[in-house]
């Protein structure tokens, strides 16, 4: 294809991306808009004469929420890996009888709508007295990631050469040693993918937060934004500034780990 034609496609591509990302731009634009300009018609298209009031409000009011989300996200990653990695190793390499049924159960588990899980967890947590606690929220959030994590890790670990594991066995390593000193280090990339998604899903979770943690002292950022929308309908620069800050993990993820993201998105749908 000739060079001018390719650049022409780049122009179209830029235009399409611009249209697609307009809401994101608008979120950023509104986050800098002054209160008095908020309802101006026509709206200001660029944040000239902007304000940092929205971000000041974030610093004043939303930092605790962000901190909680960070804790919940990291907790979800750790718990997800602790449960999913050994399971994946077993399903991929030890292949016990009944492993197929377990994989099937995990596929089904992925399809359960969040509202059903939320209601069941609510009933269960109420009796256990762990409503509005962080460990409770973390456990619930892991259900968003564990089935996905096992599927990704199993696929990856199946590709580890059998010779590598046999060499370890000859050297006298048991299953646990093999898992810890060979399988886990070799699976680094898949573990990163899984961790990133588990973090992002826990960070973004709204349904578990709003059902299981809505009365808690420690609430995540999704509830921070939700209360904002409910309480002060007028301060949209503060709401959008919080939204911008809440988007940072997604942006970071995309910049530093794009190929892991793509791998994660396609893992469920496309077989190599």
């Amino acid at each position: 294809m000739s060079t001018p034609r390719r650049w022409w496609k780049t122009l179209i591509g830029l235009a399409l991306t611009g249209v697609m990302l307009f809401p994101v731009y608008w979120m950023i634009n509104v986050s800098f808009t002054r209160d008095r300009d908020m309802r101006r018609s026509p709206p200001s298209w660029f944040p000239v004469d902007g304000t940092l009031d929205g971000y000041r409000a974030v610093l004043d009011q939303q930092l605790p929420y962000l901190g909680i989300s960070l804790v919940v996200g990291l907790g979800t990653v750790v718990l997800t890996l602790v449960i999913a990695a050994p399971a994946a190793y077993s399903l991929a390499k030890l292949r016990p009888r009944g492993g197929g049924a377990l994989s099937f159960a995990l596929l089904i588990a992925q399809m359960v709508p969040g509202i059903i899980m939320a209601m069941g967890f609510y009933a269960m947590y109420l009796n256990l007295g762990v409503l509005n606690t962080l460990p409770g929220l973390i456990v619930a959030d892991t259900t968003l990631a564990v089935p996905f994590a096992v599927l990704i890790l199993t696929t990856f670990m199946s590709g580890i050469p059998q010779e590598l594991l046999q060499a370890a066995r000859v050297d006298g390593a048991g299953a646990v040693r093999t898992f810890r000193s060979i399988v886990l280090p070799v699976s680094r990339n898949a573990i990163i993918t899984v961790s990133l998604f588990a973090f992002l899903w826990a960070w973004s979770d709204f349904i578990f937060a709003s059902t299981l943690d809505s009365g808690g002292d420690h609430q995540p950022i999704t509830l921070g934004i939700y209360h904002y929308i409910g309480n002060n309908n007028q301060q949209w620069n503060a709401i959008m500034a919080t939204a911008v800050v809440a988007s940072i993990p997604a942006a970071v993820l995309l910049v530093i780990a794009q190929r892991y993201v793509t791998a994660g998105v396609t893992a469920g749908a496309v077989k190599d």
Binding site: R6, W7, K9, T10, G13, L14, L16, T17, M20, L21, P23, V24, W26, M27, V30, L200, W203, S204, F206, T222, I225, Y226, I229, W236, I239, M240, A243, A246, S247, A250, A251, L253, L254, Q258, V261, T262, V265
Partner: peptide, 29 residues
């Protein structure tokens, strides 16, 4: 084409944003 990989990555942004972020942005728009 030039920049295609970058643009394709940018297209992922709406899918990665927390739903509360996209929903409230759309609500205001």
């Amino acid at each position: 084409f030039p920049l295609s990989a970058t643009l394709r990555a940018l297209f992922l942004v709406p899918w990665l944003l927390p739903l509360i972020v996209s929903s409230s942005t759309w609500a205001w728009m």
